[in-house]
């Protein structure tokens, strides 16, 4: 609102908002802080907040004991692979729906959306069985494909909404200017679509990284990503707060950073363009 706001009012807003914000963020903050404590400090009563001996020891231990890198690598491959594969398949689809729409386009889009709504547990056994029969249980490629299929509707949708924002007149101008199909794609459409494609990749990478139904149920050792690695800490012998925190911090840090870049796309991607 254009009206001038008194400084007091603004200060009050700031105080309230920061308090609430920090409260909501506190579990993450606490986890990160604890990861730098020794196990004794981690469970000290009363808790120490900042003034403890900062140590990186936990990270080393987690890394050594649990072969953290392998889980990380699996996560990167599964999330990255499924996203890239999905985008490769979705770009032509979204492209044709945005630029040469037919009467069926809307129905197809809605139908794609409906597949996303299918509860995973409803098809858990068939997929599980298929994986066993094809010998791809606990297999990274299988998970890449499955997560790609899970997120494909969202990828198509996001790309579609981005592509649709490219005005048709620009394409006509390019045609008048002598651009053939190849040049039109190369010089006009692709550069204009790149930001949309990048945001789509970002958001879907995050969603795939955090996916915790199929990754938990279809992996055991070889293909287990970070979701499964963390879940293994829920057993009693894993109960060391500082190490748990270090492991957690490593699992969420990359995504938190990416997440900060994708706030805006989040709304578009998860509401299927219904809220802008």
């Amino acid at each position: 609102m254009a009206r001038a706001v008194t400084t007091q009012r603004k200060a009050l807003n700031t105080a309230v908002a920061w308090t609430v914000g920090l409260l909501i963020f506190f579990p993450i903050l606490w986890t990160v802080l604890t990861s730098f404590k020794t196990e004794a400090e981690a469970i000290a009563n009363p808790p120490v907040i900042l003034f403890f001996d900062w140590t990186l020891e936990n990270y080393g231990v987690v890394q050594e004991r649990s072969n953290y890198m392998r889980f990380l690598w699996n996560s990167v491959i599964i999330a990255g692979g499924s996203t890239l594969l999905g985008v490769l398949i979705a770009v032509p689809a979204a492209w044709s729906m945005a630029f040469v729409p037919s009467k069926r386009t809307k129905d197809i889009l809605l139908w794609m959306l409906s597949t996303k709504m299918l509860p995973a547990v409803g098809v858990l056994y068939p997929i599980y069985l298929l994986c066993i029969q094809l010998g791809v249980l606990d297999n990274r490629v299988a998970l890449v494909v499955i997560l790609m299929l899970i997120n494909l509707p969202i990828i198509v949708w996001m790309l579609y909404t981005y592509f649709r924002e490219i005005p048709g007149e620009i394409l006509e101008a390019a045609r008048m200017d002598g651009a053939g199909l190849k040049e039109e794609l190369l010089y006009v459409l692709t550069p204009m679509a790149v930001p949309g494609i990048a945001s789509t990749i970002l958001l879907n990478f995050i969603l795939a990284w955090n996916e915790a139904f199929w990754t938990l149920n279809l992996t055991s050792v070889d293909a287990a990503p970070l979701t499964a690695f963390i879940a293994s800490y829920s057993s009693p012998e894993g109960l060391f707060f500082a190490k748990l925190s270090a492991a957690s911090t490593m699992a969420i840090a990359p995504i938190l950073i990416l997440g900060w870049f994708s706030q805006k796309q989040l709304v578009r991607g998860l509401t299927f363009g219904a809220v802008k």
Binding site: P167, E169, I170, A173, A174, Y187, V188, P191, M192
Partner: peptide, 8 residues
């Protein structure tokens, strides 16, 4: 064009 249709 009416919307200019410049390449942004």
């Amino acid at each position: 064009f009416q919307s200019y249709a410049l390449y942004p």
